[in-house]
Amino acid sequence: MGYLRDLWSRREFAWYLAISNLRAQNATTSLGIVWWVLNPLLLTGVYFLVFGVIFSQGRRGNPEYLAYLMSGMFGFRFTSSVIQKASNTIVSNSKLIVNMRFPRLLLPISSIIESAIGYVISIMAFFAIILPVTGNWPGWNLLYFIPIFFFHIFFSLGLGALAARLAVPFRDVSNLIPYLLRIWLYLSPIIWTVDLLDDVPAWVEPAMNLNPMHHFLLAYRTALLGWEFNSVHLAGTIISAVLFLVIGSISFIRFEGKLVNYL
């Protein structure tokens, strides 16, 4: 409880660190903050070229597929960027940690803020592109985005804290993370669509429910693409958020006094 109060009293620190990092990242490029919009767009551009045009299986240049791809890709990218930032944040702020006494969970939290700002911007870019092409405005469904985003933040914070806690004593973890994230990307409903699943073994479809990202992305599609609401996905997001937040933050907090030994 005291820890939570400490966290709250230093919330400005997490915010300030996130903003300063974002600023410093783009200070050396000539396009600067334009990259915030450009990065997610180029990323989906690449995947759309490969899976929407080249290996297109009959959906060549389909704008519905573009919307599907972008909504999934941006949601996944939020979590993956939190994990990558959080696993580096302890080492890159080691001097702050060595000299200052503050709740270390603020560092993964600032990674969350950084990534969340990027995510919100990419969602705006999503509508700027999708609306003129498909004309599908999700209407009131868009409100559903808010609770899902909220659970998604806590889910990612838990994973980020876990990654940070593991990456400091075992630096090998940082090398492994990009590959794990890549596999997770392919296992989640981002590039492939559900109709692809006709000729797979029967156990695959229930097994997909074990992937938290599956629930988050399908819930996001209710919000962003106007898909039908499914309470299973809502429950899936809540359970994943609570579970990972508890596991991640507790294991992080129990370890944080030892962090300096490994820096």
């Binding site: 009293s9 400005e12 300030y16 300063s20 001097k95 702050l96 200052m100 603020l106």
Partner: peptide, 20 residues
């Protein structure tokens, strides 16, 4: 306690905010 990529001024704030 410095983050080298950030300016001196940003570090002043960062340090002060970290200390509450």
């Amino acid at each position: 306690g410095f983050n080298g990529r950030l300016s001196g001024k940003h570090n002043v704030y960062l340090g002060g905010l970290a200390l509450g």
